[in-house]
Amino acid sequence: MVAVVPGAEGGHLRQAGIGGVFRAVVLLVVGAFFLIPIIASARYSVLGVHNHITFSAYRSLFNDPSFRSSLWLSLQVAILTVILTGLLVIPTSIWVSVRVPRLRGLIDALSIVPLGVPSVVVVLGILGAYHSILNVILTSPFILAPIYVMLALPYSYRTFDTAVRSLDINTLVEAAQSLGASWNRTLIGVLLPNLRAGMIGALILAGAYALGEFVVASLLSFNTFPVYIVQIGLTAAAEAVAVSLVALLVAFIPLSLVTIFGNGRTKKRSVGATR
């Protein structure tokens, strides 16, 4: 099905005036815009006195104890975010499509609502609603995890739900249960293996969101990794650029895994479907 998309090779677009010169100019300019900051950061981070190359920025980062402690805190929060996302998104999405398809529209719509509430406003609301009664909870950095689960829901839920939709889930459930499998066994033994790509994608997106999030952490005064970067940026620009470069490059790894995983998986499935 995917293979016969009209004009998949774009030949007719070239006929319609999107010629070689146009493509070359646009791709070159846009490509340069995206590459230059990366190259400039790399150069800037190793810039010593009199244009000598020095790795002192990286070295002093590595020796900074708050570099490690903030990274460790961010990792913990991210892991908790991933776990909570899994517990919330996976059962809900599966349950809705198997048991209450009538609610699918509502659940789906609710999952995008966080996009409409800027995270500054979320912090404002959480402080306003809970500050007086939950002072203790708001002082533990792990309160960040459920907030991140909610803020990342538009990405994580959609990703997983797309995978659920592309599966003939009712047939699988009926088959498993007619063979005597319990609900848990159906879920763990049958559904989740089939939904692995969507699951990994959703969880990586949630984790990446938690690792990069700055607004909520900074406003609730927790020293997560992005908050740390801004703090050292105030005094040591080269260090901040160095650590930002590493963060940008590292972000590429899990996020491109999502796209590669996702793409490979859908392709395989659609081939199976045409067969």
């Binding site: 900051p37 990366i38 992005p226 970067i229 940026g233 930002s244 940008l248 972000a251």
Partner: peptide, 20 residues
């Protein structure tokens, strides 16, 4: 790479442009 970059943003981006 578009879907990666669309999700980037944030703090590291600011410093990448300060360097640029």
């Amino acid at each position: 790479s578009s879907s990666v970059l669309a999700n980037t943003g944030g703090v590291p981006l600011a410093f990448a442009f300060i360097a640029t």
